[in-house]
């Protein structure tokens, strides 16, 4: 029953999105060692509380988003485009408005 404020589309029902995964993972370079890749692909924290995660607005604008969500209360603290340059553009335009 979560509602996500997509920066591109506005507030939408969770049924329009698919869950991606842990947004805090930094994937290693393609030529990094198997150990580094193992850690990035398989090791996950099981967080109780605020978690940074990716969601895909798959039945909407098809943008990947980074969502800060509390795993206990489902409270969503923030939503931003996962694409960093796009996220910066958004942040800048918000500052302008402010």
């Amino acid at each position: 029953m979560i509602r996500i404020k997509c920066p591109f589309c506005g507030e939408r029902d969770h049924s329009e999105f698919t869950y991606g995964g842990d947004a805090s993972i930094v994937y290693p370079a393609l030529d990094a060692s198997a150990e580094e890749w193992h850690d990035a692909v398989f090791l996950r924290e099981n967080i109780r509380g605020m978690q940074s995660e990716t969601w895909h607005h798959v039945n909407g604008c098809r943008m990947w988003l980074v969502v800060q969500r509390d795993t206990v209360t489902h409270e969503i603290r923030s939503v931003r485009p996962a694409h960093e340059a796009t996220a910066k553009l958004f942040a800048a335009s918000e500052e302008e408005v402010a």
Binding site: T18, G20, A23, Y27, T54, H56, V58, R62, M63, W64, P81, A82, H83, E84, A85
Partner: peptide
């Protein structure tokens, strides 16, 4: 399609 979008938006911006 989802996979290509994920790579381009989250990893290889």
């Amino acid at each position: 399609m989802v996979w290509l979008e994920e790579l381009l938006q989250t990893r290889w911006a």
